[in-house]
Amino acid sequence: MTPGCTLSIVAALALAGSVPAHAATIQITMENLVIAPAETSAKVGDTVEWVNKDVFAHTATARNGDFDVTMPPKTTMTLVLKKAGSVDYYCRFHPNMKAVLKIEP
């Protein structure tokens, strides 16, 4: 093995050790006009998976404008979290459906 090749292998191993852990998938269910769980914690890079188990459409609409996801009946929608912060969201069609998503860096 040549010295340059050895250096490349060492550099590659060093970079592999600095790769962040895999992002998580956070599942939130909308069923019987309720968002569950009502408070969820996640990290930037995680994926939120909203599962609409109802027979009518729902939305996950952030009050700060960060996201607005529309879910037809009996569907699942996903969103990768890009920004840290606490986000209050609700269903535009059923405003009594409210929840909080706490996103850590």
Results as ranks from 00 to 15, higher is better:
residue 2 T to G: 15
residue 2 T to L: 10
residue 2 T to E: 13
residue 3 P to H: 09
residue 4 G to Y: 10
residue 5 C to I: 13
residue 9 I to C: 09
residue 10 V to C: 10
residue 10 V to W: 08
residue 13 L to F: 10
residue 13 L to M: 13
residue 15 L to F: 13
residue 16 A to W: 11
residue 18 S to R: 15
residue 18 S to I: 14
residue 18 S to D: 12
residue 20 P to R: 05
residue 20 P to I: 01
residue 21 A to H: 13
residue 24 A to G: 11
residue 26 I to E: 07
residue 26 I to M: 09
residue 27 Q to H: 13
residue 28 I to N: 02
residue 29 T to H: 11
residue 30 M to R: 06
residue 30 M to A: 11
residue 32 N to I: 00
residue 32 N to F: 04
residue 33 L to W: 10
residue 34 V to H: 08
residue 35 I to W: 06
residue 35 I to F: 12
residue 36 A to I: 08
residue 36 A to K: 13
residue 36 A to W: 05
residue 37 P to K: 00
residue 38 A to I: 04
residue 39 E to D: 09
residue 39 E to C: 04
residue 43 K to Q: 14
residue 45 G to V: 06
residue 45 G to C: 08
residue 45 G to N: 06
residue 45 G to I: 06
residue 46 D to H: 07
residue 46 D to V: 06
residue 47 T to V: 15
residue 47 T to A: 06
residue 48 V to S: 04
residue 49 E to V: 08
residue 51 V to W: 09
residue 55 V to W: 09
residue 55 V to Y: 11
residue 56 F to G: 04
residue 56 F to L: 09
residue 57 A to N: 01
residue 58 H to L: 05
residue 58 H to M: 07
residue 59 T to F: 00
residue 60 A to R: 00
residue 61 T to M: 08
residue 61 T to I: 04
residue 64 N to E: 11
residue 64 N to S: 15
residue 65 G to R: 05
residue 65 G to I: 08
residue 67 F to C: 05
residue 68 D to S: 14
residue 70 T to S: 12
residue 71 M to P: 01
residue 72 P to K: 12
residue 74 K to I: 05
residue 77 M to S: 13
residue 78 T to W: 01
residue 79 L to D: 00
residue 80 V to N: 04
residue 81 L to R: 00
residue 82 K to L: 02
residue 83 K to W: 03
residue 84 A to K: 06
residue 84 A to E: 07
residue 85 G to W: 03
residue 87 V to R: 04
residue 88 D to G: 04
residue 88 D to W: 08
residue 88 D to V: 09
residue 89 Y to V: 02
residue 90 Y to R: 03
residue 90 Y to Q: 07
residue 91 C to F: 10
residue 93 F to R: 08
residue 93 F to P: 14
residue 93 F to K: 07
residue 94 H to C: 09
residue 95 P to V: 05
residue 95 P to I: 02
residue 96 N to M: 11
residue 96 N to P: 12
residue 97 M to A: 09
residue 99 A to I: 05
residue 100 V to G: 00
residue 101 L to N: 05
residue 101 L to R: 08
residue 101 L to Y: 07
residue 102 K to V: 14
residue 102 K to R: 15
residue 102 K to Q: 14
residue 104 E to L: 07
